[in-house]
Design a protein around this nucleic acid. Structure first.
Length: 97
DNA sequence: TACGTGACCATCG
DNA sequence: ACGATGGCCACGT
């Protein structure tokens, strides 16, 4: 049984603390069978006005995925104190859990 | 049913 | 350490 993987994904998303980030793959692994691509897809389809921290999700290589909102994502992470190294990678300490 | 797609990932050179 | 490569797999059409 895999009731609304999407719901599990969003629940986990909502639990990521401010100032921390996690990856598509890690979120997927916490659910009952979602894949990283499904996580990405769930984020892409989020409605406009939602309050979920979509910007706290990055790739396994600790970079921002390529998508239209990437510039805003970078800005929002910086704004809440997530440190980036010189080459645009989020520092390992910012990873959640 | 079949096929293309993608906000990915692990592996390898 | 970093880019290229191939795999994976749920979804929509």
């Amino acid at each position: 049984m895999k009731p609304a993987l999407r719901e599990q994904i969003l629940t986990i998303l909502a639990a990521i603390p401010e100032g921390r980030v996690t990856t598509y793959g890690r979120i997927a692994a916490m659910t009952d069978g979602a894949t990283p691509r499904l996580v990405a897809r769930a984020l892409r389809e989020l409605p406009e006005g939602h309050a979920l921290p979509w910007f706290r999700v990055i790739t396994a290589s600790r970079r921002l995925a390529e998508h239209p909102g990437a510039p805003e994502q970078r800005q929002r992470l910086l704004a809440e104190g997530v440190p980036f190294d010189t080459r645009g990678r989020v520092t390992a300490e910012a990873l959640w859990p």
